[in-house]
Design a protein around this nucleic acid. Structure first.
Lengths: 197, 197
DNA sequence: AACCTCAATTGAACATCGTTCACTTCAAGC
DNA sequence: GCTTGAAGTGAACGATGTTCAATTGAGGTT
């Protein structure tokens, strides 16, 4: 039946998400998930071409949640700098609350890159659009091309802060994530005298 | 003999570095390295408590190389903004030329975090000092505490740009790494009106 | 030269992993 | 009841990290 297939698939994704969330990507394995959803490994491989695709499904869910949260943060704050600050904090909080799920977004590489489904890239670019919209509100005079680059630089910055922190490579000293992130956001929101590209 | 032990250890590290460089972290395994250095897996486990420690040794080497390159970039450029731009480009070029070695710096997590040797953290903080020195030259009026935060925000930004690019999650559009990085560096080097922490 | 000692070396063996596939099951159509 | 084909099964394969009883061999002692 088609229904059972879909139910089982969703159940597998949910359990995989749970497992990664608590034990990290290394804690995930096919036999464990198969047992959890009460089927054989063979059936699991009917649902997902390989474990990579199961992880991918979890990542897609994570990205979707993240986008919803960021959009909410943007919507419930005053447009512009405050919205960007709120988004940065939301992103950081998500990463800190769900370190394993967040890390899996980047730890996981498809063995064959051409296997990576198109949805994945689309899901991500839509994140940029939220940022671009805020940046454009702050700097209406800048060309769209410039805004796009700024959005990527800012996003990468927030991302890097999280990455270096979560992987325990930044927070060995007394500086808090929020301070560092706020400093970064401020660079992109306060008015400059000139600027280079 | 002590000498053989050390020689074999270095040989193992060199081969592991080579293997990771060409085949990524997944391409590394104990039997392969053992065969390369003409000893048994058992002996390899006498040299390294586990494969994690071999990877760690490779990472330490990578960090060391990176620091030398960054210091060179800083020294051969005019102090301040130009030096920072040069360092950013050096970092990016290194990451792009040695994507696997660079990724391994972050992909690899010790199963027991308390195992992570102290050298590792020290090697990294010395990277910050190079940055801090440049930033302080640009903003001599800022307190050291503030400079430290800026250094971390900038470093994280450059890092994030590389990460999102290397893992193929940013460069699906037409914006070049250098443009994005230059934009970021410019934010930290041009004079602001005010700023938030 | 024969012997002893013990640390270094070995690789078979174990547990676990992703993945496959010949076999079994079973619901639907006749 | 019989047939058919898709779905489900789990033993089996190869590769992995890691261990450890057995072996080796260099250096000291007699």
């Amino acid at each position: 039946m088609q229904k059972r297939h879909e139910n089982l698939r969703n159940l597998a994704i949910k359990n995989a998400q749970n497992r990664i969330s608590t034990h990290g990507l290394h804690g995930l394995n096919s036999r464990f998930i198969a047992k959890k959803i009460a089927c054989s490994v063979g059936t699991l491989y009917n649902l997902f071409k390989s474990i990579d695709f199961l992880i991918f499904a979890v990542n897609l869910k994570t990205l979707s949640t993240l986008e919803t949260l960021l959009q909410q943060a943007a919507d419930t704050s005053e447009k512009g700098e405050l919205a960007l600050q709120a988004m940065a904090n939301t992103y950081i909080n998500f990463a800190r609350s769900n370190p394993h799920l967040w890390l899996t977004l980047f730890e996981h590489q498809f063995t064959n890159t051409e296997d990576t489904p198109q949805d994945y890239y689309e899901q991500r670019t839509s994140l940029f659009h939220i940022l671009e919209s805020q940046l454009q509100h702050i700097h209406p005079e800048l060309p769209l091309q410039h805004i796009a680059i700024e959005a990527r630089a800012l996003w990468a910055g927030i991302h890097g802060i999280c990455m270096l922190n979560i992987t325990n490579k930044l927070n060995d000293d007394g500086y808090t994530l929020q301070d560092i992130a706020a400093t970064l956001v401020a660079k992109f929101t306060t008015q400059h005298q000139g600027g280079a590209v």
